[in-house]
Amino acid sequence: MKIQEIQAEIVDEFSMFDDWDERFQYVIDLGKSLPLIDEKYKTEENTIKGCQSKVWLHAEENGDKIVFTADSDAIITKGIIAILIRAFSNQKASDILEAEMQFIDEIGLKEHLSPTRANGLVSMIKQIKMYAFAFNSKHN
């Protein structure tokens, strides 16, 4: 599936929720549901330090695609990571570079991506784009 299609799917899922607490509960459950990164990749090098919560991000090449795995010590942050990974992992570098972040706004989680939240998510998105940029430069 293309990034845009996955994003539309996520927006659709979130449209079921009327209240903030239902949306939060869904994000929390996403955060709890899966181990997002192999423990061995939780290295200092892969750490993105937010002021409040920590994020780990690991990238691997898979043919012409990039596979991202990530984690956080805070569960809401981790839930949002699960959403971002679903949208951006296993995609072509050029698609990742072109992708918009509008969908986060549409699912009512924009506040979590504000730089003032200091949860590491903004840096994580930058890092995802950096990996895609580096991948592109290497192969073109």
């Binding site: 409040q52 569960i75 809401i76």
Partner: peptide, 22 residues
């Protein structure tokens, strides 16, 4: 078992301003 940031985010939604972090 709960990260302070998560508590802060949820109580903020309920109008409670507390500080979280270090």
């Amino acid at each position: 078992g709960i990260h302070p940031y998560d508590i802060g985010m949820i109580v903020d939604k309920m109008g409670i301003a507390v500080r979280t972090g270090h």
